[in-house]
Amino acid sequence: MGFREYRIGSIMFGVALATSMVVTVYMPGLDISNTTATATALEKQLTYGKVAGFDYGDPFLHGDDKPIKVILKKDPKTGAAIDETVAYVFKPGTSLPSGLVHDHINGAAIQALSVSLGKTDQVSVEAGGVYLVVKSVKNGVETPYIELASATRGWTIDATLKAADQEILAGAGKVMFIREGCWWCHTLLPEQTHDWQSFGRPPMLGDFNGESPTTFGSDRKAPDLLHVGSRNSSKEWMMMHFFNPRLVQPHSIMPRYDYLWGGVDKKGNNIDLAKWDEEFDAYREGSRVYPPEVPEYADNSEIRYLIDYVLDLK
């Protein structure tokens, strides 16, 4: 390449950029795509559904088009008592996570078991279904796989929802987590090297297969939340903290999420925010002994989704 020889320069530019992309996109892509999913990854896929960000199914990020996680203590079909089981209910039309749509997401062994034992070749968006994460033990090696309980155990969607002890709307909650920008301050990534002592186990290589988006977060202005549900499982505390963080943590800089109540409490009464603030100010100034009561949220309110999600981060 001599002086002002742009044709060669352009070719070299192309070669340099292509080499760089091979090393930084293609090679890592191959490596990462070959990882085998862990049970955590399968559970996350079934909890969060297809995409927690913008998607056709939920363009305004209201938490639509998401599965329901339920906890069962009796068999939905027979009614017999069973060990506490987590099932994931996809109502008809709910989009499926990529691990159920594509064959290569979860790794060959898991895919083979899911198809042969779990009947996941019968999944369908139109019909919906009830899913489980099950472990198969062979030669002392545990392999998790997905089971379509509607096909293997005859659990229908209605029966499962009816038999459910508890419904956890963590899939819709993750949408709230993203839309409300929680991840601008709270990371979901305890760092590998040091802070697992306070924030818990850092994630493993296969913990993310099929999750979208991963929202690690990059700027930690607040505690890491990956295992927050294990540290603090109180729904009441979460409710107070979301309504006004200063209620439970006087020095917190977290924004108030009172608007996620949707203006009404559990009984459908309107929430008088101005009055609440007045009473809270009185409490802060010491002229009131107890802080005002935080209104309980409605079952279909956005704050319910968010609290379900946060408490589900185990």
């Binding site: 305890p190 590998q192 697992w196 818990g200 186990r201 850092p202 493993m204 290589l205």
Partner: peptide
């Protein structure tokens, strides 16, 4: 050593 687990390294 990853949290409470002893796991094969990456």
């Amino acid at each position: 050593i990853i949290g409470n687990d002893v796991a094969l390294a990456n």
